[in-house]
């Protein structure tokens, strides 16, 4: 999904040592979704760091400060909270841990459920009162 390959003014990404292959994914290279129970293969089109279920977009709180460090002892379910956009136009999925409230961001994968993504994207505008008030005050 890298469409506008603009690197101008962008901070380089941090190094990530994702340990899917040895830890929770086991030998089969798949993990079970904490939200819907889907068996999800680790390989995903468009990203090398799949951390959420492509069907319900739920993730698991296993990483601490750096993605892939597996430092968090929480193991809570992370529900998809909102969408953010990078300066180059890529969508980022923002998760919040339902147990401890920690936030994290991950790039969307090519096979993520488009309907669930769009539902998240229109959520700020879906409830009419707040955006209408906001537009009236402009």
């Amino acid at each position: 999904m890298g469409r506008r390959n603009t690197t101008r003014g962008r901070r380089p990404q941090r190094r990530k040592s994702v340990t899917h292959v040895h830890r929770e994914s086991g030998r089969s290279g798949a993990f079970r979704c904490a939200g819907c129970g889907l068996q999800v293969p680790v390989d995903a089109p468009g990203t090398a760091h799949r951390n959420h279920c492509p069907h319900c977009l739920t993730s698991l709180h296993v990483d601490g400060r750096v993605p892939g460090d597996r430092r968090a002892g929480c193991r809570g379910r992370m529900a998809a909270l909102s969408l953010a956009t990078r300066p180059d136009g890529e969508w980022l999925l923002v998760h919040r841990c339902v147990r401890c409230g920690e936030l994290s961001a991950n790039r969307v994968a090519g096979d993520d459920n488009a309907r669930a993504l769009v539902r998240l994207a229109v959520r700020p505008l879906a409830d009419g009162s707040v955006p209408r008030r906001a537009l009236l005050r402009l």
Binding site: L81, S82, R96
Partner: peptide, 17 residues
């Protein structure tokens, strides 16, 4: 500010990074 989230309740939540 990177994103606006709407948790249950309808009030907007601003996400910073």
């Amino acid at each position: 500010p990177i994103s606006v989230a709407v948790p249950r309740g309808g009030a907007w939540l601003l996400i910073h990074r």
